[in-house]
């Protein structure tokens, strides 16, 4: 039995400690906003915040997340009122949308740490893959969200 705290709620899960956090959250807790894209920490579709740090959870054993604050896309807001969600909506960022939970989680962690990121800060932080190529609008949306703060 492993205890993890997801979106402020403590949950006990009966899984092997090496099971990646992504699959625990998706299959055991039924929070499916975080996506599977590569399983090797390359694409970032599975990004969650672990104690506030954007983390690729498809390669993070659940045991390593025990006792830490885990936040998923579902924690931002269900009514799209978080400033990053608002900026994403205003800039009409998503296309297929599959990678966007991860993109939004990286962007929101970036803005917490760096309230007014430069283009080069964005280049360095936003390394998630988007196969639809929404990158230009992601950049604009991050600048917009920074202005809203």
């Amino acid at each position: 039995m492993i205890s993890i705290t997801v979106n402020g709620i403590k949950r006990d899960v009966e899984v092997p400690g090496e099971m990646p956090l992504l699959w625990v959250v998706r299959d055991e807790l039924n929070l499916t906003g975080s996506k599977f894209g590569c399983g090797v920490g390359e694409c970032g579709c599975c990004t969650m915040h672990i104690d506030g740090v954007a983390t690729r959870t498809c390669v993070l054993p659940v045991s390593a997340a025990a006792g830490k604050q885990i936040e998923t896309i579902e924690s931002l807001s269900s009514d799209n009122s978080h400033r990053v969600q608002k900026a994403w909506l205003a800039e009409q960022v998503p296309q297929c949308g599959y990678c966007q939970s991860g993109q939004i989680m990286v962007a929101s962690a970036l803005l917490k740490k760096n309230p007014n990121p430069s283009d080069s800060d964005i280049d360095q932080a936003m390394t998630n893959i988007c196969r639809c190529g929404t990158y230009d609008r992601i950049r604009t949306a991050i600048h917009r969200a920074a202005q809203e703060a």
């Binding site: 929070l31 998923t72 949308g97 599959y98």
Partner: peptide, 17 residues
Amino acid sequence: QRLDIPQKLNGTAEYGI
């Protein structure tokens, strides 16, 4: 505006997976 965007911002959009 795209009609499919709101659900793609908060984890509620449903893909095959």
